[in-house]
């Protein structure tokens, strides 16, 4: 047991280096891409990273097909805005409550989802997203329905003693905030999936019956994965309204769930870094292709199709193939 605890706290140097590189990238990216437009795209990218990481926990590590992730994103966005605007809550408190609300919604879905598998679960989760969307559209007294909520302010500034005020009205600070949170979430999930909990989730993914024979309570652990993933998606949703300034139900239609799914699959499902790569690529690619004019969507579609066809393991598979080819062969094959 002692040895195991030591292993958990003693990370290999390569992981430390990876974390430091990620932190450096988060700090440097908005300084390199120093215009409001590109910084705005970085904020969207950070939100997408959170969403892809959350879906990956359910889909990639636990093997549960969830097509309703946009619902939790929406719950986070709406609950935080309603608490702030209608009930006068502090944004940071509202953010915690909204994330928790999304988590509870995830647990509610899990109560039904644990009985289902594969396509059936996919359809049930899709249904959940449709129901959530309809609630947003029709519960007008609370959500304003299709008329939407406008003039939403970014998170309030943070005042730390002895330091200048940090205002999130500019996308530089907002990106560092959302990017920083995405980094912390990544770090937590990375440790989680390497822990016995992660092994349990992977066991469920591989074979539920075998896992049950080892004493794993599948229903409980699936509910855990759903709850945690929806909390993270809700957290991402809290930053969306303040960034766009408006909130309408159409921003959370089921197409968004498929975009999140594409991020996870294109990047590399069941790995930690894969969904991050997927989120970055699928956020930046459409913007970089804008110069291609009307060909943009065609190129985007073809690129996605090619990745899925020839790299079922996602972009990460390509990286691994290249790394394997470049590495010196241990069997001395190079001398033949």
């Amino acid at each position: 047991m002692m040895a195991r605890t030591d292993q958990a706290f003693m990370m290999p140097p390569s992981r430390w280096v990876g974390y430091l590189v990620a932190l450096a990238l988060i700090v440097a990216a908005p300084l390199v891409l120093g215009t409001p437009y590109w910084r705005g795209i970085l904020v969207v990218c950070a939100m997408n990273v959170l969403l892809a990481l959350s879906l990956n926990l359910v889909l990639g590590y636990t093997g549960q097909l969830n097509l309703g992730q946009s619902a939790f994103f929406a719950i986070g966005a709406y609950v935080s805005v309603i608490l702030v605007r209608s009930h006068g809550w502090n944004f940071w408190l509202a953010m915690v409550a909204a994330s928790a609300a999304a988590g509870v919604a995830g647990l509610l879905l899990a109560a039904f989802a644990v009985r289902l598998r594969g396509h059936y679960l996919g359809i049930a989760s899709l249904g959940f997203a449709v129901i959530t969307y309809q609630v947003l559209v029709n519960w007008e007294r609370v959500t304003e329905g299709v008329r939407g909520i406008y003039g939403i302010m970014p998170p309030p500034p943070i005042v730390l003693p002895g330091l200048p005020e940090i205002s999130f009205g500019n996308s530089l600070a907002l990106f560092w905030l959302v990017g920083g949170i995405a980094f912390v979430v990544y770090w937590m999930l990375d440790n989680l999936v390497r822990s016995p909990v992660g092994e349990t989730l992977r066991a469920l993914r591989e074979d539920e019956v075998s896992a049950a024979s080892l004493g794993i309570n599948g229903a409980r652990w699936k509910a855990f994965a759903f709850g945690l993933a929806s909390t993270i998606a809700g957290l991402a949703g809290c930053f969306y309204p303040g960034f766009v300034g408006t909130l309408v139900p159409d921003a959370f239609n089921i197409v968004e769930s498929f975009t999140m799914l594409a991020m996870v699959i294109v990047g590399g499902m069941g790995t930690m870094i894969g969904p991050v790569i997927g989120a970055v690529v699928l956020t930046f690619l459409p913007e970089l292709l804008r110069s291609a004019g009307e060909l943009r969507l065609m190129i985007y579609g073809i690129a996605l199709t090619l990745v899925v066809l020839f790299m079922p393991g996602g972009i990460l598979q390509l990286v691994q193939i290249v790394r394997t080819r470049l590495a010196p062969r241990a069997d001395g094959g190079g001398s033949r």
Binding site: Y37, G40, V44, V244, D250, A251
Partner: peptide, 11 residues
């Protein structure tokens, strides 16, 4: 789309 329009107008 509000999000796309927001990004696009900034661009």
């Amino acid at each position: 789309s509000p999000l796309q329009a927001t990004n696009t107008v900034k661009r």
